[in-house]
């Protein structure tokens, strides 16, 4: 279990940026730090890895890491830019940490497990992005770390490679304790057991992935996780929406149903398997996914229980 309650201030010439977080990652759990650029998620990760001074405490399996240098933390890092050692072969990269860990895993077995056994003698510079990240994962796995710290490991990859590696990553991290930084809600939803949404260096909401996505605590969390935020007063009475500021996920909004209220399609964009449809309903705007391109004049319904009333005082910037 990785527990941390940390605060740190980062200064440059003009500004100070503060990061503060109190989070727990249970054994075998993947916690996603989800947030926009500049929300402090990478700084938080680097802080856990031991590269920045901080106040507060970091505890890994009951052991305090506060004064431990990075090499004694038993946390393996995986980076967006792979950070392979370009002067070493693939196998030497994977085996790098074995020098310092008696219980290290066999590099060749790891390369085979990640489907890149045939690259063992190659130079990292000759590999594709997906191959590089597989090697980097093998390198991180080799030392049997107590936890993984992953910083946008899929963000530099093209879509097909990203999806394939994401699926493998889910398998690799299944029983591992991991903190996974991403700005991409789709990735977060796919890999995370729990999500902490970050904004301005603070945790805006933390909870099980589906809970955060279905029941966002603030407007910011709702918007960043892809929900639509509307005021109930702007919706027609026929939608049977509860009162207050509401969040609803696009996948719950049904288009072209007989029992629905009239709606007008203002935009429809094809996305992989579905059409992402923007609808004008009363004075509000809703987003939905439809299997086919709907006619301009259609109907819309939201099943009861799919509306989420944002908590009062669920202001942003509160933690």
């Amino acid at each position: 279990m990785l527990r941390f309650d940390v605060r740190a201030a980062f200064r440059d010439d003009a500004t100070t940026f503060e990061v503060a977080a109190d989070l727990t990652v249970r054994d075998g759990e993947t916690l996603c730090l989800l947030g926009p650029s500049g929300s402090g998620k990478t700084l938080l990760l680097e802080l856990l890895a031991g590269f920045h001074d901080h106040d507060g405490s970091i505890e890994l399996d009951g052991r305090s890491l506060d004064d431990a240098p990075p090499e004694e933390r038993d946390l393996s890092l995986v980076f967006q830019n792979y950070a392979l050692f370009s002067h070493l072969s693939v196998r030497e990269n994977v085996a790098f940490g074995a020098t310092y860990h008696e219980d290290a895993r066999d590099p060749d077995a790891l390369l085979a497990r990640l489907g890149v056994a045939d690259l063992a003698t190659r130079s990292p510079e000759t590999l594709s992005g997906g191959e590089k990240q597989r090697v980097a994962l093998a390198r991180a796995l080799c030392v049997r770390p107590d936890a993984f710290l992953l910083d946008e490991p899929l963000s530099a990859l093209d879509a097909p490679t990203r999806e394939r590696l994401r699926d493998d990553l889910v398998d690799v991290l299944a029983d591992e304790t991991a903190v996974y930084v991403t700005h991409d809600r789709t990735t977060a939803r796919a890999v995370a057991d729990r999500v902490a949404v970050l904004r301005g260096g603070r945790v805006a909401q933390v909870g099980p992935t589906e809970a955060v996505f279905e029941r966002p605590a603030t407007r910011f969390v709702a918007a960043f996780t892809g929900a639509t935020v509307v005021e109930s007063t702007d919706l027609p009475a026929g939608l049977d929406a509860p009162t207050g500021t509401l969040a609803v996920r696009p996948e719950h909004v049904r288009v072209g149903v007989d029992t629905g209220v009239p709606a007008r399609v203002t935009r429809a964009v094809r996305e992989d398997a579905a059409h992402r449809v923007t609808l004008a309903v009363g004075d509000a705007e809703l987003v939905a996914y439809a299997p086919t391109d709907p006619p301009t004049e259609t109907t819309v319904a939201v099943p009861p229980g799919r509306w989420h009333v944002l908590p009062r005082g669920g202001r942003d910037a509160d933690a």
């Binding site: 946390l75 393996s76 050692f85 080799c142 030392v143």
Partner: peptide, 9 residues
């Protein structure tokens, strides 16, 4: 940083 996290001083 990767090297440090892998145990290298």
């Amino acid at each position: 940083r990767a090297a440090r996290s892998l145990g290298a001083s």
